[in-house]
């Protein structure tokens, strides 16, 4: 079974590579050999969108890994974070309409980002303290509670912010494109990738190099043992929930600047996070990284390298990715059975 899946997996990868390299005639991007510039762009698209996936999914996986809570309100915190940042940005810029890149200094973006992340984190913390902590260990019940909260938040956000699409303005500094050896590319997308790397490194350092991180990692492996050692595990849980939700809020600000905010966006980003962690393995930072990259590759390559009339079938490839990974490793690339 294992080796069949392995062979199948590598064959798929080989066919994919050959297709992109030589055979992809009649696709929007054309084969690599004839249009190397397009390939570079698509690859960059894959990496930069993967960065955004990673920021959002890392919070999701952190909460799950430590507490076995599938926080289905994660998408709601994402959207709420975005809306909050937009309100702060309007306040700081002093305009409510037609905010230009030139109007937005770096701080007019960074401060709303920090405030939104903070507020999303606090809301997540409140949700955990008020509703979830009484049901620790009843993972399905906790999941249901987060569903109920997501339903309520989604409806309230329509009434507070309206349903129509809005977006957050990037700072003028990065809201432009650069051209390097004939390839034109967006600075804000590269910035997004940069932020993801910073977040990833910070999370890694936090989990690997600090005492709190050590406790969290120990908690992921064996919560009751950590508790038995006299460590206040409740505090650690609260912290993890705060950080996880704050990451959702932060992702919301970046996602809101990149792809806009509207009713229903919460569900899309929840789905993205779930796919990332299913592919990568729940509760592991490495898994979130791998999952984001794979999903990024699929979202960027499928519409570019499918024959032009079939680009709307690209959603199927997300499913193929999922099926292929799960057939090989049922708990994701870096996951372990519960």
């Amino acid at each position: 079974m294992q080796w069949i899946a392995l062979v199948a997996g590598w064959s798929v990868a080989a066919i994919f590579a050959a297709w992109v390299l030589v055979f992809a005639n009649g696709t929007p991007a054309e084969p690599l050999v004839s249009q190397p510039g397009d390939f570079v762009k698509v690859l960059l698209n894959a990496l930069t969108i993967a960065g955004l996936y990673f920021i959002v999914a890392s919070g999701f996986t952190l909460i799950f890994g430590l507490m076995r809570v599938v926080n289905l309100a994660h998408g709601s915190f994402f959207l709420l974070g975005g809306y909050i940042a937009l309100e702060f940005q309007k306040l700081m810029v002093g305009k409510s309409r037609n905010i230009l890149g030139d109007d937005v200094g770096v701080f007019d973006w960074v401060i709303p980002l920090l405030l939104a992340a903070m507020i999303a984190g606090i809301l997540g913390l409140i949700m955990q303290q008020v509703f979830l902590r009484w049901f620790q260990g009843q993972d399905m019940r906790e999941t249901m509670i987060t569903i109920a909260i997501s339903v309520i938040l989604a409806d309230m956000m329509v009434s507070w912010f309206g349903g129509i699409g809005v977006d957050i303005q990037w700072p003028g500094l990065i809201d432009r494109a650069i051209t390097v050896s004939g390839v034109r590319y967006s600075v804000s997308r590269l910035f997004m990738l940069g932020v993801a790397i910073v977040v990833g490194v910070a999370l890694w350092a936090w989990l690997q190099k600090t005492r709190t991180g050590m406790v969290i990692r120990a908690g992921v492996d064996d919560t009751s043992m950590v508790q038995a050692l006299g460590i206040n595990v409740q505090l650690v849980f609260a912290l993890a929930f705060f950080v996880g939700s704050a990451l959702a809020g932060m992702g919301g600000v970046m996602g809101g600047s990149f792809a806009g905010l509207a009713a229903g966006v919460d569900g899309q980003w929840l789905l993205n996070s779930i796919i990332v962690v299913i592919v990568g393995g729940l509760g592991s930072l490495k898994g979130a990284l791998a999952g984001s990259l794979l999903l990024g590759v699929v979202t960027a390559f499928a519409p570019s390298y499918l024959p032009a009339g079939f680009t709307n079938y690209s959603i199927i490839f997300t499913f193929v990715l999922l099926g292929a990974v799960l057939a090989w490793r049922p708990y994701g690339l870096f996951g372990t059975p519960e």
Partner: peptide, 29 residues
């Protein structure tokens, strides 16, 4: 595909199936 995992993992995999199905019927005209 889904039956090799259990618990919350199973829940999330099946949720993903469901949502992908939604997009499939939406996008594949």
């Amino acid at each position: 595909v889904a039956s090799r995992s259990t618990g919350l993992y199973f829940l999330m995999i099946t949720l993903t199936f469901g949502v992908i199905g939604f997009y499939f019927f939406g996008q594949v005209t």
